[in-house]
Computed example of a mutant assay.
Amino acid sequence: MQELVNASKDTAVQIKTKKKAASKVKYQLEYIRKNYYLYLLIAPAVILTIIFKYIPMYGAIIAFKDFSTIKGILGSDWVGFDNFTKFLSSPNFADIFLNTLKLSFYGLILGFPVPIILALMINQLRRAGIKKNIQLVLYAPNFISVVVIVGMVFIFLSPTGPINQIVSFITGKPLMFMSNPDYFRSIYIISGIWQAAGWSSIIYVAALANVDPELHNAATIDGANILQRIIHIDLPTLKPLMAVTFILAAGGIMSIGFEKAYLMQTSMNLPSSEILPTYVYKVGLQAGDYAYSTAVGLFNSVINVILLVVVNKIVKKLNEGEGLY
């Protein structure tokens, strides 16, 4: 008798669960029907993401094959992790990997605070005309082509350029900036900060615009100076945004732009300028070893994902549970 009672209870629970699930599905379908225009609005972005981001992932399988253009992706012989082993055991693996890591890490550490500082400085300007002109000057470099930026770097740092004219006046001889590996990393990072810092500060300026002016007025009445107001009012406002942007930047620490590094390369600065993206281009498109270059690129992506997860966990612990996810 007790078994029949338990069975009826289980059946009632199952029926209740099914009704609840059906009701939830019905509610979701009704919500979609009423707000279909919202889904139509995001549909192009979703479709483009699937076409250009997810579908190409199928091609990553050639990293595990001895790819032949004649046999195709499915017809090529499976070699497992041979391409990865070949890259990890290559004599230039350490140099390329460390060059990529150093360039990204130094660029992140030195470049991350600059947009925040610029935003805090811009936020202190009270005259709208001056503020707009300064913002225009700071944002303009972002719209300059990478090719033009590199051309400007070569002109300014050439042996007869304006920088070397000053150096020659002081030391008596010019410095070979673009042919010396020791200068490549500094030139790359500084020019990158100059180009991107102003544009990257926009998001912080927008966040600071939402700060209640009454907080600053009250702090001023209490005797707080500018630095104290920035530390106790502005920075706490930017803290969640800083955490998210830092996690995203750290997650892409191995994803350096290929164009600028490749354009700045010379035969003399290769020990410092050869990084994973330029190496993939050379062994993949120039040498035609598509499977090997895909393995290198996939290795780079895996490192990025690992860094994203690790940095997110660290930031969540340091930021009272606030992270990217």
Rank of each mutant, 00 (worst) to 15 (best):
Q195D: 01
Y37N: 03
L235H: 01
V302N: 13
N217K: 03
V205G: 03
N164V: 08
T245A: 00
F299N: 12
M254K: 10
I42Y: 01
Y37T: 03
E320A: 13
Y281A: 02
D95F: 11
Q124W: 02
F184R: 05
R33E: 08
F156N: 10
Y325V: 13
Q286L: 13
F177W: 14
K282T: 01
I50P: 10
A209L: 10
A94D: 10
A21L: 12
A140M: 15
L88D: 02
S272L: 09
F67M: 04
N99P: 10
M254N: 11
V146W: 15
E30F: 00
W194F: 10
P277F: 01
F246C: 02
I233L: 09
D212Y: 04
P240I: 09
A291L: 06
Q286V: 04
F93R: 00
F156H: 04
F67W: 11
S23Q: 12
K18M: 14
M254I: 05
F84K: 12
G161L: 08
G251E: 05
K132E: 15
I149N: 15
I15P: 12
L136H: 13
K313R: 13
I96E: 04
M178F: 01
K9D: 02
H232R: 02
I189G: 09
A250N: 04
T85I: 12
I61A: 07
R126L: 12
N142H: 15
F156A: 08
V79G: 06
S90A: 08
S76W: 09
L324R: 07
I155A: 13
D182H: 11
S301F: 06
I253C: 00
I50Y: 13
K131L: 11
V296L: 05
L118E: 13
M242L: 10
S200W: 03
Y139A: 09
V114Y: 06
F169I: 00
L324H: 09
G161K: 12
I62H: 06
D222E: 06
S89L: 11
L101P: 01
K239Q: 09
G72S: 00
Y27K: 12
Q2M: 12
V305T: 12
N123F: 14
K86E: 10
I62S: 00
